[in-house]
Amino acid sequence: MAGPRKGPGGAEEPPPLLVKIVMAGESCVGKTSIVRRYTEPDSPPAGTPATSYLATIGIDFKVKLVMFNDTRVKLQIWDTAGQERFHTLSTSYFRGAQGFVLVYDITNLKSFQSITMWMQDIYEKAGDEVDVILLGNKCDKESERVVPKQKGEKIAWEYGIPFFETSAKDNVNIEHAFSLLTKEILEKKSCVLYDLDVVTLNESKKRTCCAF
């Protein structure tokens, strides 16, 4: 079993910062393919005969270690099932998440129309301050498009969240989307830690003053 990770000076490095991200959206929009493309970039493209992924049954998760501003971050990405019969189970995993990747399929109007429902579930289970990013997936299927890019941009603007059109098959915007979401989560964490430090410092000063 490997020991603690050592830094350049031989000192033990702190454990990576754990970030929980949840994939959300209807079934068959490509959530699993997006996760695999991001966490296993050297695997064959999704959609090839060897990697045609079945709809996720229940819950699965992948882990990816990334560096952000010299900080090691362990992304725990939960892939939830989009089928209605798994809805209660899937949304139960929303609690405690710092970020969400909400996905629709640009060739499936119903998956786009369900975004409002999924956003309500996210806000109800995880709070309205959680970071969310919206992905219009399967942009490689332009000839089958039924959801204009402008519609995705508009609903993302209404919710105040970032938006990308992506392709897990062609690896379009996958890395960029996760990097942006991670950046926003960590910046929010830094603000919270700073606020806590200020409160702790003020409380310490009060106790010191009262001691005299």
Rank of each mutant, 00 (worst) to 15 (best):
T91W: 03
W157N: 02
L180F: 07
D128E: 06
N108R: 06
V130Q: 02
F68D: 01
F100M: 11
M1W: 07
A46E: 06
T182V: 08
E13Q: 15
L17R: 09
F100P: 03
T182K: 04
L102T: 12
G47Y: 02
R95H: 10
P4N: 14
L54Y: 02
L180Y: 03
S92E: 03
E158H: 07
L196I: 11
D60T: 12
D105C: 05
K6P: 07
G7F: 15
K110S: 08
S52N: 15
S33Q: 04
D70Q: 14
E158C: 08
I155R: 01
G9I: 04
E165A: 01
S111D: 08
D170C: 03
L181E: 00
L65I: 06
S204M: 04
T166C: 05
T56H: 07
L181W: 03
T71K: 13
R5F: 04
I185G: 06
K141S: 07
K169S: 08
E144H: 10
Y123A: 10
S27Q: 04
I115L: 15
E142M: 07
S92Q: 12
A55P: 15
I174G: 10
E187M: 13
V22F: 02
P41V: 07
F94A: 11
R72L: 14
L109G: 00
E144T: 10
Y53F: 15
Y123C: 08
L65A: 05
E124N: 10
I115P: 06
A156C: 09
E144R: 09
V22N: 08
V101N: 01
R145N: 12
V172Y: 00
I155E: 08
K189F: 05
T71Y: 06
S167R: 00
L54K: 11
T88D: 11
N173P: 03
D60S: 14
V73N: 03
E124W: 00
T71Q: 15
R85Y: 13
P4E: 15
I185S: 08
Q76A: 08
D79W: 10
E129S: 11
S27R: 01
D131K: 13
P8V: 13
R85Q: 11
D131Q: 15
A24F: 08
T107K: 05
I133Y: 09
